[in-house]
Design a protein around this nucleic acid. Structure first.
Lengths: 210, 210
DNA sequence: TTGGAACGGTGACAAATGTTACACAGAAAC
DNA sequence: GTTTCTGTGTAACATTTGTCACCGTTCCAA
């Protein structure tokens, strides 16, 4: 098994060897569920290729986007879950084709003291996840829906590297925890202002998109 | 320096000894700022007595409550900040009289591999903080303001152990990231429904408060 | 090719929240 | 005691967001 160059870069050789030995490469297709709400998590996913979308659900099945993980990032919440044998409080879905390296839960703790680079990676990851969550809270608590929508579209563009975003209004509404009608309305306003172009299942961001 | 019995309970003797040697006991009064937005954090606060309130601010000075820390709990975000020499993204304020044990940042990392009980404590703490943040996001994203207000009052009651909550409508509005008028309005409705009694700077929760 | 499902546009309206303005009461300062 | 400040009550209104209803279009599968 090969791990991506950017990971190899930060890990010491002995750790890379262990990752190659114990890590399991898994592939997912768009929409596949990697972790689910209420399920026990026995491995920590390390994103090798593609994007992993992490969501929070409430009891009524409403969802809201927490953050995206891309190459070489990992989900710290899975880490916590593994150590404490806890059920997942979040759901993770493949966004497009995805490859992860699944690190078995018994190695997580072992490597922490054995490999400083692993410890640093984990700690940095906790930190980044906290920041993402704070950004998410800030967005929900302080910004109006139109701003959040714009930020959402920008993030999608950044992750995909394309100005043509493939998504239905339904999906966007779900991830922003609102309704389809509201999103359609706001998108139409953006289109009328010359910021975007709307097609079925696709949104094109124009040059002067903020 | 003495650390509280509930902490002594979970730490091994050698670690307790180190905490006594290197930890610094600090006292704060109601409203004192323990950590501030944008400041570098060089110690991790371990709450010994009282309650520590943790807030997120946006660029316009708006604040929103993230969670409360009580005895024997700690702020994992401070931990992350210490390790990476990062500025704090949150603000922590003493809620009533507060005593903390300040753990110097150079010990944090050292103890992680030296004392399994410390590692477990830190990991459990990360986990709890993630849960609190998720709860916070769920509350903001999915619940209406009246429900959030009720949850807020309950939490205040739990932390203070008293049904008489000392707070102005202004303060509550700030922590829920809304305006005073809105809070006054909702509180008045609760009073008219026989759930609470309103006084100046005080709210009494009645028996059938949900 | 046809029927249904998914997608999106839009009007009308409801509900929740935000804003402004002002009045008054009690506490604190002088 | 008078003034000043802070906290609260309330009306009126604006804005934002949510909901329902209905329509036409596009896509896909039987």
């Amino acid at each position: 098994m090969d791990e991506p160059a950017n990971l190899a870069f930060q890990f010491e050789p002995a750790l890379i060897k262990e990752i190659e030995e114990f890590g399991e490469l898994r592939s997912f297709k768009d929409g596949d569920i990697v972790m689910d709400y209420g399920k026990y998590i026995r491995m920590m996913p390390l994103v090798a290729k593609g994007t992993l979308k992490v969501l929070k659900m409430d009891d009524n099945g409403n969802e809201i986007l927490l953050y995206y993980l891309s190459s070489s990032e990992t989900c710290s919440m899975a880490y916590s879950c593994c150590l404490e044998e806890k059920k997942s409080e979040v759901k993770a879905i493949a966004e497009g084709d995805l490859e992860i390296i699944a690190i078995p839960h018994n190695k997580l703790d072992e490597w922490l003291c054995k490999y400083p680079s692993w410890k640093n990676y984990i700690m940095r990851s906790f930190n980044e996840r906290f920041s993402e969550m704070l950004k998410s809270i800030e967005s929900i608590a302080f910004h109006k829906l139109d701003d959040r929508l714009i930020a959402y579209l920008k993030e999608k563009k950044r992750l995909s590297g394309s100005s043509a975003i493939k998504a239905s209004h339904y999906q966007i509404a779900d991830e922003l925890a609102t309704s389809r009608v509201v999103i359609s309305r706001l998108l139409k306003i953006l289109e009328n202002n010359g910021k975007i172009l709307l097609y079925r299942n696709e949104i094109k961001l124009l040059h002067d998109f903020d």
